[in-house]
Structures are given as C-alpha cells and as structure tokens.
C-alpha cells in the first residue's frame, strides 16, 4: 500500500503547560474525505492546528506527501499544499470578499475556471464580491472561508466544524459544495460534530478521545453500527 497523503505518528502537542495530544496516530489517504469525530475536548481542533503548524509538535512526526514536515513553519506547509478552514473561519473582515480571495490566490488573481467553480458553489460571493467581508452573514463567511481553500489547487484541505451555528438549509448547501470539492479529487480532513453531515461526506473516519485516536476505519462501518457508536463516543451520534 502506498504511503498516505498525511500521516501523524505518535504526535504529542502541548499548549502552554497543557498536554493536549497524547500520541496521535492518524493516516489520511489521498483523495476522499476523512472525518475526525469525538467529544468536545478530545483534541480534534488541536490535531488540525498541529497539521497546519499553528501548534508545534513536541514529540512524534507529521509526514505530508512523503516528506517529514514536523519542523516546517506554517507558511511552508501552506505552500506545500495544505489549506486551512478554521473553526473561527479566519475571514479578514476589514477586506472585501475580492481582497480575501486575492490573498488566497497566492500566485495571482482569483480568476478562470476555479473562480467559476467558487461562484457556482457559492453564488452569494459573486453578489457581495466588492463588499467588506465583515458585512457577510455567518453562512456567507463560511462559504468565503471554504472558497479561499478552493481558489488554488490544494492537496489537503483541513476543515474545522463548518456546519457549526448554521441554519439547516445553509448546511445542506455547504454539504453539496464540499461534495463537489471532493469530486474534484481534493483530499479533505474534516472535524464535524453533526453526524448526518459527517456520514454524508465521509469516506473514512477517525474517532478521538483524550488526545488519542481510539478508532479508525471506513465511515460506512461506523454509520451502520450503533453499538460501536455508543462505545466510541459514549452517546449515540444519531442523537445529534
């Protein structure tokens, strides 16, 4: 079997004096969507932030596309093809939608088929193209955050709870857009609390608890096995 696109081996991460990740082992195969599930405080967000490099790895290795990136600073990881859609969305509210996209399209202007794809997935971004991003609604900000990761070819997109706080109609649209993104061959590692979203998009799944990955396998296996869900997360995911 070929090496996965992203592999974390025995990763420990400290935030200040708090020891958050206790040896995370995680493989994300190329293509498809890997879902990261688990209770609040399990270390899901910290795992994503460790992959993009906001938190330093205190022990263990992070390998991406065949290279050891453990010591790489964040910008280098981004240039190597990792995109980040953080939980806070990270929108530059003082800049217009267009200016946000200009910064995301590192090599040049946002244009061409990639921009067409963005507008097709998220029509409001075309409507508010010249408006300050701070004036967008929560859902539109989330669209912009995802759009920034779509405007350049990326090998791995990290998405942290995109459905959080959004109305069901917006969530359904977002799922459609993410599915379209997945169909372009992008690899996505996504944290999601909403199990219906996770099941709709996920190909494989990793469940975290107390700073470790406690289960990894195909999504279908977990989705069909209520007993397994109960055992892994202490509560039925269907309840969400």
């Amino acid at each position: 079997m070929s090496e996965p696109l992203l592999r974390l081996a025995g990763v420990h991460t400290h935030i200040g004096r708090y020891h958050i990740l206790h040896g995370v082992d995680l493989s994300v195969p190329e293509g498809g969507v890997t879902m990261l599930l688990g209770r609040n405080g399990a270390g899901k967000t910290t795992t994503l932030r460790t992959v993009i490099g906001h938190w330093r790895t205190s022990q263990g290795t992070v390998r991406f596309a065949g290279e050891d990136i453990t010591a790489w600073p964040t910008p280098r990881r981004a240039r190597a093809g990792i995109a980040d859609v953080p939980e806070s969305m990270g929108i530059f509210t003082d800049l217009t939608v267009e200016e946000n996209m200009v910064l995301a399209a590192r090599a040049g202007k946002p244009e061409g088929p990639r921009l067409d794809a963005v507008f097709k997935a998220f029509p409001p971004l075309r409507t508010f193209w010249k408006n300050p991003a701070g004036n967008l609604s929560g859902g539109q900000k989330q669209m912009l955050s995802v759009a920034r990761a779509m405007i350049e070819p990326r090998r791995l997109i990290l998405i942290d709870e995109p459905s959080k706080g959004l109305a069901p109609a917006i969530v359904r649209s977002l799922v459609e857009a993410l599915r379209a993104l997945k169909d372009t061959g992008a690899t996505i590692l996504m944290v999601e609390q909403n199990f219906s979203v996770a099941r709709a998009l996920g190909d494989s799944v990793a469940v975290m608890d107390e700073g470790r990955v406690i289960h990894a396998g195909p999504m279908a296996e977990l989705a069909e096995n209520r007993e397994m869900q109960e055992r892994l997360m202490g509560l039925s995911l269907e309840a969400h």
């Binding site: 964040t74 953080p86 003082d94």
Partner: peptide, 24 residues
Amino acid sequence: TKVGLLVRAGVENGEMVEALGYDI
C-alpha cells in the same frame, strides 16, 4: 497593493495570513 492587503489582513489575524502561505 497586495503588500497593503497582507498588512491589513495581518493586523486582524496573523495566524490566518500564515495559513495562506505568507511569511509574516
């Protein structure tokens, strides 16, 4: 200018500027 955009973006959220691949 793009440099100006980066400065304004960096004032608001330097972490995100780095995550877009710029050396802050």
